[in-house]
């Protein structure tokens, strides 16, 4: 262990432990447990059966009762370890249960029946994953549809965001025109106006335009992000004007200058914005919650919340669907973390 910590942390000069070294080790250790722990616990729990979830204190790993198929019985029967009166132990299957008494049979010899008090037996369990937690909501409930809706919203909103924001950023960074500062001020001023401030009137506009209960009603208000325009403009300002003048001398039209010169050179900033946009739109909650009131247009976030709000909370499904909702973001995190951290550190945008 000491070698591990020595590997993980290098101490501030010398051989003696400074108190800051102790704090560092404790903080990082607690960080790993606190930050990753809940997600790991969520994934482990999501693979438990309803019975497993109901256990208290909970087991760390998901267990499932082992079952056996016995001739003459339609369903697989659960196995139990039973202590016989003579003190010997045997693994028997439960054929039927009435009250506290269960009728047990030997799988090898189905005709040999034995009546056992349920207190005198232990279920035979092995680590097992309740995949039906995942398959059932996706197949039998609407979650597959919700996921489709979420993907549609995320992809379409991101594409529109990239195109419209980059066009506006191009105009605002590479042209001098009357009213430019007015537009810029407008954009900066609304940078921090959250949705919650314009929730009510925005909803009335969505209703008036017939976008209530449509995915476009979720998409459109989110795409003209001042943040995106701002971020792209700051980046485009670093592209030398001489390159654009060279293109103009080269007979390029303004559209070509945008599309063939400026956009390719803005690729790093576009990538950052694309990643942000995907995460934002995938995670959006309040606005879809307001706009979508029919199940068939729910996004995952809204569907999940509605599901968790039902009177009879079915945790085994909720946990599994929470994991599903988390997957794209975790993938983004694993593969694109560098872009995101660089983007945030560089711009302070989230």
């Amino acid at each position: 262990m000491s070698r591990v910590t020595a590997f993980l942390t290098r101490r501030r000069g010398g051989d003696r432990w400074h108190w800051t070294d102790v704090v560092t080790v404790l903080w990082l250790g607690a960080g790993v447990i606190l930050m990753f722990g809940p997600a790991v616990w969520l994934v482990l729990s999501s693979l438990k059966t309803p019975a497993g979830l109901a256990e208290f204190p909970p087991t760390l790993l998901p267990y499932a009762a082992e079952t056996v198929v016995v001739e003459g019985y339609d369903k697989p029967l659960p196995l139990f370890t039973v202590t016989r009166e003579d003190g010997t132990e045997a693994v028997l299957a439960e054929a039927r249960r009435v009250g506290t008494v269960a009728q047990m049979i030997d799988p090898a010899n189905p005709d040999d029946k034995l009546r056992v008090n349920i207190a005198e037996r232990e279920p035979v369990r092995a680590v097992g994953f309740a995949w039906e937690n995942y398959t059932q909501p996706l197949v039998e409930r609407n979650f597959f549809l919700y996921a489709q809706n979420s993907v549609f919203v995320t992809v379409v909103a991101t594409i529109i965001t990239l195109v419209t924001n980059s066009m506006a950023a191009f105009a605002l960074s590479k042209y001098q025109f009357r009213g430019r500062s007015a537009v810029l001020i407008l954009i900066v001023a609304t940078l921090m106006i959250p949705l919650s401030v314009i929730l009510v009137p925005l909803f009335s506009i969505i209703s008036a335009t017939g976008l209530f209960n449509t995915l476009w009603g979720v998409i459109l208000p989110t795409v003209a992000t001042p943040t995106g325009v701002f971020l792209l403009r700051q980046y485009m300002l670093t592209i030398p004007d001489e390159i654009i003048e060279a293109a103009r001398m080269d007979h390029a039209s303004e559209w070509q200058i945008y599309w063939r010169i400026v956009l390719p050179l803005t690729a790093p900033a576009l990538a950052v914005l694309a990643i942000f946009s995907v995460v934002w739109r995938w995670n959006d909650f309040l606005w879809p919650l307001v706009v979508l009131s029919r199940q068939d247009v729910y996004t995952l976030q809204v569907g999940l919340n509605a599901y968790a709000g039902e009177l009879n909370v079915q945790w085994h499904f909720i946990l599994a669907m929470t994991v599903v909702t988390m997957i794209p973001v975790v993938l983004v995190f694993v593969f694109l973390q560098r872009f995101i951290t660089a983007g945030i550190a560089g711009t302070g945008v989230k």
């Binding site: 001489e242 390159i243 003048e245 060279a246 080269d250 007979h251 070509q256 010169i261 050179l265």
Partner: peptide, 24 residues
Amino acid sequence: MVFQSYALYPHMTVRQNLSFGLEN
């Protein structure tokens, strides 16, 4: 025009830099 900073298109090869204006 030949610019002080050359203003070559950084994302294009030399050949594309030369052909861009002619294609236009």
